[in-house]
Amino acid sequence: MKRREFLTVPVKGLGGVLIYSLAGEAIRVQAQDGVVRVPLRFFNEAEARTVQAACARIFPADDSGPGATEANVIVYIDHQLAGPWGADKHRYTKGPWVESMPEHGYQGKENPREIYRAGVAKLGGDFASLALAAQDERLRAIEKTLFFQLLRTHTIEGMFSDPLHGGNAGLIGWQLIGYPGPLMSYRDEIDKYHGMPFEAKPRSLEQVVGRKVVGWEDEKE
């Protein structure tokens, strides 16, 4: 049996939530000295560190607010890759495989899991321990690759998708951009809030509907 891999993440983002391992058993996250150990579903710990560090360069914590590490973007990506999307369960994967023009989109055989495994290996096992400028240099070198484009897209998704998917911990992302969450009604607001911000404390989908919501990546096939 595969050894269970964990990643240490800051506790600020994970207020006592239950994390589900790939096998489906619930593990209550325990806070210790401001950090928690999160069970990984797809990455091993070293890979997760590399991806976490790369996401933090794409969407860094800085004087404009928290970033990818604080929002647990790594947990989001780990869950997506472990789920059906990571295995191309919804993409046409019959051959023959041929190269075509950009207007025909990605025609490659590799699924997101394989693209990540290869991309992370290319960033190097020492990536997370490099100085930030050296990390940026390595990322610039792969900027045009499909792996980097996925990583950038997933970083944004992990920042701003509903926390039921593992990222946007503590609604950090939505607080950053003033998104109130999936509220049920703006009937009294839509014709009043003209040119001014609608400032509401963000709420997640589960908070809005008052029950557990299961993401596609967590559903049994």
Partner: peptide, 21 residues
């Protein structure tokens, strides 16, 4: 649809659409 207001699953992953696989 009462708990379907999830942009990732529905607008990005397109879970209501035909499965292209």
């Amino acid at each position: 649809y009462s708990a379907g207001m999830d942009e990732l699953d529905y607008a990005v992953r397109l879970r209501m659409m035909q499965n292209l696989a």
